[in-house]
């Protein structure tokens, strides 16, 4: 239990000429639920997307379960690994997106089973069983044959969560998953995430929902200008913010 599940070391990332991450260090242990808060432009989404290699980075390293992912060192330069290796590295994590990104031409069940069959090469029968289990867990058993267009936003996002966790990833990544939802649909999704946390899933959650972050996290990270400004338990961050930046941020959010 000594090795952290996720270890981000000295991560630097540029978009063209603009540097958005200036040396981020982060450790997440198995079973941790880490929320990342901060204003837009602070780099929190970019950080998350680096973990599953949807964004590239120029300096630093990311390790999952002790293994460096995505890049290898060639001298002092980082060289991206092959596409097939990157795909394998991505299987270690699961991601849920702000805009759900369900596959519109597939039913809820097929959305969940497609990677089970094509990536993990499971049989049709086994994939369906796993899909049934997870769609029930998120409360959508009766809608498993519906298409995304027949589902509400909250329902679609719950399918998206089922799709990601069904692959049994070591780490779940949530990228502002309720920001695109109508207010009355947010809680059904947050409840699903809370349940996953209770079951012991290791999670990295980028969110604007402060109360939710306070309730569900074991650790909260405040990001500011591409670095981690402050980190601590929910009590420390929300009730006893130390830095001015964090105090101002909390004041301007509705916590």
């Amino acid at each position: 239990m000594n090795n952290p599940l996720l270890k981000i070391s000295n991560l630097y990332k540029r978009f063209g000429d603009v540097e958005v991450l200036h040396g981020v260090d982060l450790e997440v242990n198995t079973g941790d639920v880490v929320s990342i808060i901060g204003s837009s432009g602070s780099g929190k989404t970019t950080l998350l997307r680096c973990v599953n290699l949807l964004e590239d980075y120029q300096k630093g390293s990311i390790e999952i379960d002790g293994k460096v992912i995505g890049y290898k060192n060639k001298g002092d330069k980082l060289v991206r690994l092959s596409n097939s290796q990157v795909a394998k590295d991505r299987s270690l994590t699961g991601m849920v997106f702000q805009s759900f990104n369900l596959f519109p031409h597939l039913t809820a069940t097929d959305n969940v089973t497609i990677a089970l069959r094509k990536v993990q090469k499971k049989s049709r029968k086994e994939s369906m069983e796993i899909a049934d289990k997870w769609l029930s867990a998120v409360g959508l058993a009766e809608r498993k044959h519906h298409f995304p267009s027949q589902l509400s936003g909250g329902q679609q996002q719950r399918v998206a969560i089922a799709r990601a966790v069904a692959l049994n990833p070591k780490l779940m990544l949530f990228d502002e998953v309720t920001s695109a939802l109508d207010p009355e649909l947010i809680n059904e999704v947050l409840d699903v995430i809370k349940n996953l946390a209770k079951e012991g899933m290791t999670m990295l959650i980028v969110t604007h929902e402060m109360r939710f972050a306070y309730e569900v996290s074991s650790k909260v990270i405040f990001m500011n200008d591409g670095v981690i400004g402050e980190s601590g338990t929910p009590e420390e961050i929300f009730k006893n913010p130390k830095s001015e930046r964090l105090k101002n941020f909390l004041k301007s959010s509705k916590f």
């Binding site: 949807l54 394998k88 699961g94 990104n101 596959f103 497609i114 990536v119």
Partner: peptide, 11 residues
Amino acid sequence: GQTEAANALGL
């Protein structure tokens, strides 16, 4: 987003 979701799933 479709490609990103597919990539995130490991496809």
